[in-house]
């Protein structure tokens, strides 16, 4: 019954000015026969009608002030924060991850890469703890996904990193660190594990012609 409900309620894909990966995320869900609806950031919406929420990649507000900082204070984000606190699944990809950190739903922050360069490449990732809301146990332990970001160096203070490690909140780690992230962290979850964020783009690896299908499992959980 619960699964049935999950299948029928659409997934909300949030769009900000400057979001660019929304269409890819929508297609990834549609290919797996999940209903999807795009939500515009400027309006409040009723989160009750949605099964889960995805914040896609891009450059919301042109990364003004700090990446994700202005988007984090938008009306639709307030509704998503409330839904997240009620236990609804929320996924942030790339800029979405930055937004989740800025809202405080996820700990830490994403700083400019230590190379000062935009990195655009495929990376090997290692699963540390599966996220029950996004892929769960279906996800393979070692996968390759593309990254494309300039502000992806995960930073948190020592105590916070230790807490993330101890509570099993680290989702993915890079096998080779591309940006200077502390502890090679590529993705994390909140304590309840319903909110997750990662810098790599699973929606860019859902068809063979893209170079791999490792990303599919993220959208089929």
């Amino acid at each position: 019954m619960k699964l049935f409900a999950l299948k029928t309620k659409p997934v909300a894909v949030l769009c900000f000015p400057g979001t660019q990966c929304d269409e890819d995320v929508v297609k990834a869900f549609k290919n797996l026969n999940y209903p999807v609806k795009k939500i515009w950031y400027a309006d409040h919406f009723s989160s009750e009608g949605f099964s889960s929420f995805v914040l896609p990649g891009g450059f919301s507000y042109g990364d003004y002030l700090r990446a994700g900082a202005l988007a984090a204070h938008s009306p639709a984000m307030q509704d998503i924060c409330e839904a997240a606190k009620k236990g609804k699944p929320v996924l942030g990809i790339c800029n979405g991850f930055q937004i989740l950190c800025e809202t405080g739903l996820l700990e830490g922050t994403l700083q400019i890469n230590n190379t000062l360069r935009f990195v655009d490449q495929w990376v090997k990732l290692q699963l540390c703890h599966p996220c029950p809301s996004w892929g769960g146990e279906q996800i393979q332990k070692d996968i390759c996904l593309p990254i494309a970001h300039k502000e992806g160096r995960f930073y948190a203070d020592k105590e916070c990193i230790k807490k993330l490690e101890d509570q099993g909140q680290i989702w993915w780690k890079y096998t080779e660190n591309p940006n200077g992230s502390l502890e090679n962290i590529a993705g994390i979850m909140n304590e309840e594990k319903n909110v997750a964020g990662l810098m790599p783009h699973p929606e860019r690896a859902v068809e063979e012609w893209m170079g791999g299908i490792a990303g599919r499992a993220f959208f089929s959980g």
Partner: peptide, 9 residues
């Protein structure tokens, strides 16, 4: 404290 500055960094 609410918007302009991220007190973490």
């Amino acid at each position: 404290e609410s918007v302009l500055c991220n007190s973490l960094v």
